[in-house]
Design a protein around this nucleic acid. Structure first.
Lengths: 201, 201
DNA sequence: CGGGTTACTGTACAACTGTACAGCAGGTCG
DNA sequence: CGACCTGCTGTACAGTTGTACAGTAACCCG
């Protein structure tokens, strides 16, 4: 679990270790341009180091990607852990959804990276989506053990529902935004249509 | 508009011109791996030609991408044109939605390519999303002129609604499928949850 | 002090990239 | 016939890629 940082204090880039700066730069660039279109040199220069150091710390590009994914998963589990497990089942679920939503809102790079990860998923590779659904599954199991989640539906159904609820809107929003931009004279800010995403069982 | 092909007859690859085979191969590979990760040589060998010919016909990779996008837009407009513009407003809209849905179902590469295009949209570039929303806008304008679409809402709102309805589910489905695969013992085929995507105004 | 691990730079290299271009076969037109 | 165009191959080239590695500076531990 990540070392807690005093709330209200944003971490300044120069205070981080070069290794962390490289990982963060990689997350940003992977999210923005995609993994394939991002060179190790671009990551290095964004982090203020040389290619050599990137290789020194992470060995290969693939290993760097895994480190980035690990960091993303950690942000999720930290966000979930930050929500108090108190109150009724729906209160706990709502608090967790809110914590995840806040985390995603404050780090758009995570959203963009995730969107790509789900899109590109090589399918067989044990990847980010797998890790996240395991995290969600554990979350659901915990709630069940505490008697806070129903056991009427299967675990798989509950995981799908949770993830779609937490992520679905974020995935479709760029489509809506980009179309809205084409007609920007008529659709500004608050009047923008709200997306509805969910699953019917 | 594309030359009509006898229904029930699937076009065999060797009957197509090399230029068309190159464009089709590019669509497939761009959809599967993304544009950045697809080399001209890979496209050439998938089409059974050499790199030289790809350059000969399309000049640059960027021009090839534009040809691919044009072909995608054409598939949409052909699908829409194939739906009879008869009946009530909602009948016409439903028929068009059905025609688009059938086209998308029969060419998964188009779906995958579109997903990427929306994701990667460089924003400022006049790209596929722009072209498709223009196509949709024209479609809406036609329906309005025929008195088949309401003018209560703005054009932008109607375009967003239409595109989200036609495309939204397809974009999120891979997320659902991949999570469902993680729990494949419990979620098979028909019992898979149905996604609900729409906009609330 | 010395020895060793760690953080880091700079350079080197083979593989691959998009693009340019010379050349060739086959057809059409004058 | 020759001139010309089109479809096509093969090769060449400069630039970029991921990775390897030698070397240097800074640190810790004995």
């Amino acid at each position: 679990m990540a070392q807690p940082v005093p709330t209200g204090t944003s971490v300044r880039a120069e205070d981080l270790t070069a290794k962390a700066r490289i990982r963060n730069a990689a997350l940003d660039l992977f999210a923005e341009r995609g993994e394939e279109a991002t060179s190790l040199r671009a990551i290095a220069s964004a982090a203020g180091v040389t290619v050599g150091l990137v290789v020194h710390h992470y060995g290969t590009k693939e290993a760097l990607r895994e480190a980035v994914e690990l960091a993303v998963v950690e942000r999720f589990s930290d966000a979930i852990a930050s929500a108090p497990p108190e109150g009724t089942a729906s209160e706990v679920v709502a608090a967790r959804d809110r914590a995840v939503a806040e985390m995603l809102e404050s780090s758009p790079a995570v959203v963009d990276y995730l969107r790509r990860a789900i899109l590109d998923g090589r399918g067989q590779r044990r990847d980010l989506v797998t890790k996240l659904s395991e995290l969600t599954a554990n979350q659901v199991r915990d709630l069940r053990r505490a008697g806070l989640a129903s056991t009427k539906h299967s675990l798989g159904e509950q995981v799908v529902t949770t993830m779609v609820r937490q992520l679905g809107r974020l995935f479709l929003q760029p489509l809506v935004d980009r179309i809205a931009d084409e007609f920007d004279e008529s659709l500004d800010g608050a009047r923008r249509p709200q997306l509805v995403v969910g699953v019917r069982r």
